[in-house]
């Protein structure tokens, strides 16, 4: 909501096993950033956004 550049999908892992396999979801939550980056677990907001920005800059 806060950025027009960000789209956010919440995906129920067990209903979409092919995606869980593709993105190597072994524990939840696991956040995939632009197909290639991954953030493991639930992080405090400031750490999460830092990792999103970092992953986005590398993709």
């Amino acid at each position: 909501m806060e950025s027009d550049l960000v789209t956010a999908d919440m995906v129920e892992a067990t209903e979409f096993p092919h995606l869980s396999m593709r993105y190597q979801v072994r524990a939840v939550p696991r956040t995939i950033v632009n197909e290639t980056g991954a953030i493991e677990g639930g992080l405090p907001e400031h750490m999460f956004v830092d990792q999103v920005v970092a992953a986005a800059s590398q993709s």
Partner: peptide, 15 residues
């Protein structure tokens, strides 16, 4: 978030 310059697609996998 304001520093982003290109689209970011997040997929949060949950159960």
């Amino acid at each position: 978030l304001a520093t982003l310059v290109k689209p970011v697609h997040l997929q949060v996998y949950v159960t």
